[in-house]
Design a protein around this nucleic acid. Structure first.
Lengths: 339, 339
DNA sequence: TTGTATGCGTTATCAT
DNA sequence: ATGATAACGCATACAA
């Protein structure tokens, strides 16, 4: 491995000079600097990130906390897209990505300790139980953090605009003539809370009264729960004409149940998902859904974090709202009169 | 941040003594050691991975190379499962995971340089173009590597048993009475080559002659390509009774095409996928498929790599074959006489 | 059993 | 414009 010392010897200068030349300091003769850089290149010099990190107290390494509880971790396309996007943006800024978790090797550690141990300059947090004391400890620590889809006081967050998304979805469905709209929501998280509130608010604005029975509790990413909820909805005396699912994947359970009862989509029942994952757009009929812009979320989260790391003085905690987009699909039947 | 020096001062011993005590060296008085450990705990001491890495030349950090070319990167459940599993096993052994890529920040780097720059102790390589010179350079370097689903000479690899998987699938289909079996394969990779060869070999063993037209070129993870291939197969004068798809996800395209032509699964056409992703098991009818044991693959890859890193002397390159399991599902109709 | 000294590769400070 | 030196936190060879 070729180090700064090797280059210094070859060039007959000191290590300090080489370091300065390589880092583009101004107090170095232009020619000397050029020569040093030339030699460094020839010798195949690579800076040693570890030594640099030790010296500077900055690792240029960002931790990511993505917990795979049940199955909503990386196996969820929404999160894998966010991760990929975080990675790309971080790399653009010269940061690498390291996973943070509990217990590394034999040492029992919490998230904060792990991040500290690895000298992470910051951590991006997504898809976790935000009420976990270990998560809260990390967020309230000296390590910069950016959370996704959850807000902590005085911390930056990137949020998918669930309120707007749900509103747009409901208005689209309403526009197609639907008045009896059912909603199967996910487990009680802040995301669910927002979507549910937006659902109610938008319905109210449109003058719709939604019966209690049209609101069903399901689970994210869980087709089985959606299937059961669908069954309950179909058993109602006054059936809805449209069902909104917690997300695209869990909709599969509803799809199966409708099929089982001989109901066709959208002829006999209109449906919509949420997320806009690849699957939703390869199904036929194409699923009506609201696409969350995971790429933008990951990118923005990484940008925010890098800003906190590199300009801590001028930084102000900020919540960035990322809009998505309605994918109209073909699963909402137009039931307006005269159509 | 509390360092070894802080502890030394508090305990009135030297840094060396603290270091030894913390690392459980035998040449330290048991009581002193206990006391030092006690104080370290009280002070909330955490070892500094960076300093340790610099000193020891070992980072306890494993690089992973998962390229998201087209869409078969992390968005593919097979790979996200492998990644999660690699992560878990690596952590059990005290290693963290860092993503490796080209071009970090402004520095143009290839994979090898990136891994070197970050002092990765080893790299796990999956889901890339293994003919990429940059990948080959990395594999042939001084950095230990383990590849997934591809073998390099004198290097360790973990392989999904595609030969056995395809054979089992074909034999199952054959057992249900099918003689006209079509196979839509993925793009030409070593995985495709193995599955295709195993398909032909197994058919031959079973005395089946498969017409050229039953072999269709598709694309992994691409429903559209599968849809088109399905259409071509359905247009044949002598239609197959069963179609094998490149993978579960791309099967969706075939499913749509069959539906479009008013054909029902498995009444009018039997089908099978490959992978055994979650989706395949929530569809109704449940998809017949071969589940690749991604968890075992990731685990084994991490184990192999750690072994190379920690016992370089006694290490011998090894190809580990990971068996999967047939998920019989409900998409293969039994067409035997008398059934 | 404990301590001293040194170095891993880098950068920053302060002389020269 | 360049160089000598120290320091980041840790572990180890060697001295005491």
């Amino acid at each position: 491995m070729v180090t700064i010392t090797d280059i210094a010897q070859r060039c007959n200068v000191s290590r300090a000079t080489v370091s300065k030349a390589l880092n583009g300091h101004s107090d170095i003769n232009a020619e000397t600097a050029a020569h040093i850089r030339q030699v460094a290149k020839e010798m195949g010099y690579l800076p040693n990130a570890t030594a640099r990190a030790l010296k500077l107290g900055r690792s240029h390494n960002i931790g990511v906390l993505f917990v795979d509880k049940t199955s909503s971790g990386l196996s969820h396309e929404y999160f894998s897209r966010i991760l990929e996007s975080v990675k790309q943006e971080a790399e653009r800024s010269g940061y690498d990505i390291t996973f943070i978790s509990r217990d590394i090797g034999t040492l029992p550690m919490d998230y904060y300790e792990h991040a500290k141990y690895r000298n992470c300059d910051g951590v991006i947090i997504a898809s976790v139980d935000f009420t976990d004391p270990a998560v809260i400890k990390l967020v309230n620590s000296d390590i910069p953090t950016v959370t996704l889809d959850y807000v902590f006081d005085s911390r930056s967050a990137v949020l998918s605009d669930n309120v707007a998304g749900m509103a747009e979805l409901v208005r689209f469905v309403y526009g197609k003539g639907h008045r009896k709209i059912a909603f199967i929501h996910g487990e009680p998280t802040s995301v669910t809370q927002k979507r549910l509130a937006s659902f109610h608010k938008t319905c109210a604005e449109l003058g719709l009264t939604i019966p209690e029975a049209y609101i069903e509790a399901g689970t994210f990413h869980d087709p089985k729960a959606s299937g059961l909820a669908t069954r309950r909805l179909l058993a109602l005396k006054d059936r809805p004409t449209c069902i909104l699912y917690p997300d695209d994947f869990s909709f599969i359970g509803g799809m199966n149940e409708l099929e089982r009862q001989g109901l066709s989509i959208p002829k006999d029942m209109s449906v919509a998902g949420y997320d806009g994952i690849l699957l939703s757009q390869v199904l036929r009929p194409r699923l009506t859904t609201y696409r969350q812009d995971a790429e933008a979320m990951g990118r923005e989260a990484a940008k925010q974090l890098v800003e906190i790391i590199e300009r801590p003085k001028e930084w102000i905690p900020r919540q960035v709202m990322i809009p998505g987009s309605l994918l109209t699909g073909d699963t909402i039947r137009d039931i307006r009169q005269g159509f």
